[in-house]
Design a protein around this nucleic acid. Structure first.
Length: 234
DNA sequence: AGCCAGGACTGAG
DNA sequence: CTCAGTCATGGC
């Protein structure tokens, strides 16, 4: 597909989603550190469960969630608190790695950590154990407020169905580049775009094909209608 | 009763 | 490099 056409379709997709759902108000958190904790806890996990874990941490900290709380909590105790998010031992270690890095290099100050450009900060985040590309971009976009597009399984699924990519197994960096090279580098735009994709896929497409009722149907040439099989509308 | 969530790491081939 | 196995809980 021609490069300029991709940009047009990405914009059109964004408009359709925005028109259908409106602003999503992401990320659902009070502070940038809470965004980071949530980003780690929601890895391969339903947000509902990750949220419970975040709430547990907040109340354990007497109401607010600060890096120092994670730093001083015993790892076993930490795992116990975040159990609802799944993989408690794994995620406890990942939370520890992040805050240990934060204190070692920035005396626990996120503001200092974030006071650098996107690319070096992204490389730094990727170097922390337990932070892969999606989590790094989530932190960059929703906590550091830098224009880094977040790609997830929903993004792959949706773009595949829209015919914008051939294969869902496309490399993470390639798909991220597809958005960033065809859209203006704008924090508010990336923020809403990713949130809208998640909203849409959670609501109507999941693993099913898109159907004529879906708000973005006009863009979907591969629209088969298994979606409403239960309604007898197929 | 399975199947799957807003992934990342590891080790094998 | 590609890819299965691993990590674990809660909702539908």
């Amino acid at each position: 597909m021609a490069a300029e056409a991709v940009g047009d379709r990405l914009i059109e997709l964004y408009r359709s989603l925005y028109e259908a759902y409106g602003p999503q108000g992401w990320w659902p958190a009070e502070t940038s550190f809470e965004v980071i904790v949530g980003a780690i806890l929601t890895q391969a996990t339903a947000w509902r469960n990750a949220k419970r874990a975040v709430e547990n941490l907040k109340s354990a900290g007497g109401g607010d969630l600060i890096p120092h709380l994670i730093l001083r909590l015993d790892e076993k105790k930490l795992a116990e608190l975040i159990r609802p998010s799944g993989y408690p031992n794994l995620k406890a270690r990942r939370l520890k790695s992040f805050v240990e890095h934060l204190f070692k290099k920035y005396s626990g100050s996120l503001e200092r950590m974030f006071s650098q450009d996107l690319d070096p900060l992204r490389d730094e985040l990727l170097g922390i154990h337990g932070i892969g590309p999606e989590t790094a971009d989530t932190i960059l976009l929703y906590a550091a407020e830098k224009p880094s597009f977040v790609v997830d399984a929903y993004t792959r699924r949706l773009l595949r169905r829209l015919g914008l990519i051939e294969d869902e197994r496309i490399e993470y960096e390639k798909l991220r580049a597809l958005f960033m090279e065809n859209l203006p580098r704008d924090v508010a735009l990336y923020n809403e775009y990713h949130a809208l994709i998640v909203r849409h896929c959670k609501e109507v497409c999941r693993k099913r094909p898109l159907c004529y009722r879906c708000p973005i149907n006009a863009l979907d040439n591969v629209c088969i209608t298994l979606h409403h099989k239960d309604d007898g509308i197929t």
